[in-house]
């Protein structure tokens, strides 16, 4: 608390302000209207239709129409058929999140504490890739990892590496692509957390005979936890549903759930199964987030 907060303030100057605040009540609700309408139109309505179409009678067709018959077997069938792909998506997303955390933490730390006058430039460098399209950036990875490209050719000329080394169209390429594309979403929240940290706390830890490692584990890391939680969520959730990286960098055996849903909706026209998969995906992610936020205990930090 600042010193100002402790200054005695004359009651008569505060009270009217509060009253005014109460009178502004209806205005607040009015201001909520655009947001509420937006949410209803673009979130609630699509979610309801999605849930409904996941319960369509699977024998429906465009010609005869689809009936909502509470056919919950769509879910069991979708899961029986596509459970391995679900598992794979979460695995890839998890791997990409770990890579992002390992790369992002030192980077965010460096920007927050060590960059000095280069701080803004480094931040711009993190954000700059957003100025080009996601698709173009992923396509350039395709070029970088190409079988006849510089990287693969150089690596396979090394003695310990097999001559027919391949990077593109492998799980490695997919995870690399995911990690690359979502790295800024990890770095920015981490930076926001670390930047608020008072460096004198570390000095104090040192004064109390904490080793640098101990200081990091007991001071820096706990204070960075909100950033870690936010960053991992922001990386993991979109990565699990991503389909561009696998589409461009993967092979048929690296299919992720996003690709399957897209394929079922647009190519096979299997609306019911595709919706069932989408709903399952949403539910699983929400549950994972709940458990994670609870375990990570950010509430304790607030």
């Amino acid at each position: 608390m600042t010193a100002l907060g402790h200054l005695p303030t004359p009651a008569n100057t505060v009270a009217p302000e509060r009253d005014e605040g109460h009178r502004r009540g209806p205005a607040g609700y009015l201001l909520m209207i655009p947001g509420t309408v937006w949410l209803a139109l673009f979130f609630v309505l699509p979610t309801v239709t999605l849930a409904a179409s996941s319960l369509y009678d699977p024998s429906g067709s465009l010609l005869n129409g689809y009936q909502m018959t509470w056919h919950w077997q769509n879910y069991t069938e979708a899961l029986r058929e596509y459970a391995p792909i679900f598992l794979r998506s979460f695995l890839y997303a998890f791997a990409a999140t770990v890579v992002c955390l390992l790369l992002g933490f030192p980077l965010a730390y460096a920007i927050a504490f060590k960059a000095g006058r280069w701080k803004n430039l480094m931040l711009v460098a993190v954000i700059a890739p957003f100025f080009t399209s996601f698709l173009v950036r992923t396509l350039s990875w395709k070029f970088l990892l190409s079988d006849n490209g510089f990287i693969v050719q150089t690596l396979s000329s090394l003695p310990a590496v097999p001559d027919d080394l391949r990077l593109l169209a492998t799980p490695f390429a997919v995870i690399t692509g995911l990690a690359y594309n979502f790295l800024p979403f990890m770095v920015l929240p981490l930076y926001a957390s670390l930047e608020k940290m008072d460096p004198r706390l570390l000095e104090a830890a040192g004064d109390l005979y904490a080793s640098p490692v101990n200081g990091f584990l007991r001071v820096t890391l706990p204070l960075a936890m909100p950033g870690v939680v936010a960053g991992t969520l922001l990386t993991f959730i979109p990565a699990a549903g991503d389909f561009i990286n696998d589409e461009l960098l993967g092979n048929p055996r690296t299919r992720m759930i996003g690709n399957t849903i897209q394929q079922l909706f647009l190519q096979a026209g299997d609306v019911a199964t595709a919706s069932a998969l989408s709903v399952t995906m949403m539910v699983v992610i929400v549950l994972m987030v709940l458990v994670y936020v609870r375990k990570a205990g950010t509430e304790d930090l607030v």
């Binding site: 926001a192 957390s193 940290m197 706990p222 204070l223 950033g227 936010a230 969520l233 709940l290 607030v302």
Partner: peptide
């Protein structure tokens, strides 16, 4: 250690959005 109030990027698990309100 007395923990300072963390500032999260807007729109995220903002400090107001505790687990309880999330639930």
């Amino acid at each position: 250690i007395r923990r300072t109030r963390p500032v999260l990027p807007p729109g995220l698990v903002a400090s107001e959005l505790s687990r309880r309100s999330f639930m």
